[in-house]
Design a protein around this nucleic acid. Structure first.
Lengths: 207, 207
DNA sequence: CCCTAATGTTTACAGCATACACATAATGAG
DNA sequence: CTCATTATGTGTATGCTGTAAACATTAGGG
């Protein structure tokens, strides 16, 4: 008796996002299509368009959610760390761990990030990373003028490693603790750059 | 009269790859489908299957070509450099320049690298990069035991930056000369890690 | 209470990858 | 040279996608 199927779903939008995230977690971006997700929620394909402009924008929303999940895990990882250096390491490690533990989600988070303006109130991995760099600056380990450059460097390294390690390349780097720790050590070296202001004029031959 | 259209194309395979590369260069991965490329070469869609197992494998071949082009440009950039440090910088800069100057090709080169075993004889960006790291090792600036770690680090940084800078993220890093030069400086710092325990004999004076 | 807006379904169509049957051209053996 | 074989192309058909348009059902406010 109770099993009367309601004509209206109730809150389809959230259901679609949830189903999308679950699928992303399980199998990556492959099946995040309108038809598949509609079926997963037991709804007609065209119903999707009452909540999203297009299949692409649905995917963009799922991707956004995945990015927020990453940011949340980074925030959690940073919470217990007080030392600037350890905070940065925690950020980097959380980022990389996310890519390794949730390869599907990570892939979805960073495929074709062509979406519109992200809401600024939502947690963003980039912001968390940048904050940890600002901390380093506040601790006088780098100068304010360097912050942007350092952030780009750190972001590139961590994101690059996560991408390569999480991917399916035959030449993908090792992913053991030692390798990751070493990577973060080297990144830290690049951040602090003993050559910059301590060692005065770089003895460049730079090009 | 000479305009008699031949029933057989002559060498369709190469034509498809060329058309694919051209399209990739112009508009990225968007239109690299069987129908589109078949039309571009003025051939029936199903003709493609005489030369490729599937549309996916066609795309994989195009992607491979793009990667080879990248490797070639890296090799060219390295050719004039003799100093180990400058060689490494040239490699990194070529990689990044490729991403910036040919965003379409770069995107195609690294989307869904799920392809089968790459031919070992073809030039590979990874190999070029690794060779430049080996050079650093031969110059006694790092130890043999570090090579893999260093290669992973350098690869991650350069690839990560190229990916981020080449993408369409709103938060994408600046791409001016200074930023790139700074990035390579910091990467170099991470490579020769003065802070490490074995701190290496200061070859710094040599520069 | 009914009218309207929100939400879901059905139907329809274009574009895609691809299988299958058929057409044509190139090649090599007698 | 002739002719069969093989390589390479075309045409047609199918099932899957994304999405538009018209219709159905329900929720909520005058």
């Amino acid at each position: 008796m109770g099993n009367m199927k309601k004509y209206h779903h109730g809150n389809l939008e959230e259901a679609l996002l949830t189903a999308g995230l679950q699928e992303a977690k399980a199998r990556g971006p492959r099946n995040l299509g309108v038809n598949f997700l509609a079926k997963a929620v037991k709804v007609s394909p065209t119903a999707v368009y009452r909540h999203f402009l297009s299949g692409e924008s649905l995917r963009a929303s799922i991707s956004q959610q995945a990015r927020e999940e990453l940011a949340r895990q980074m925030l959690k990882a940073i919470a217990t760390q007080t030392d600037v250096k350890n905070r940065f390491r925690a950020v980097g490690r959380a980022y990389i761990n996310f890519a390794l533990n949730e390869p599907g989600l990570f892939a979805v988070a960073f495929v074709a990030c062509e979406e519109g303006p992200q809401r600024e109130d939502s947690p963003s991995a980039w912001m968390v990373l940048q904050d940890s760099i600002l901390d380093i600056c506040n601790a006088k380990l780098i100068e304010a003028s360097e912050v942007q450059q350092v952030a780009s460097f750190a972001w590139a390294t961590v994101h690059g490693f996560a991408t390569l390690a999480g991917g399916s390349d035959p030449r993908r780097p090792k992913t053991n603790e030692k390798t990751i720790s070493d990577l973060l050590d080297r990144t830290w070296s690049g951040i602090i750059q003993l050559g910059s202001k301590n060692s005065a004029k770089d003895k460049l031959g730079a090009n």
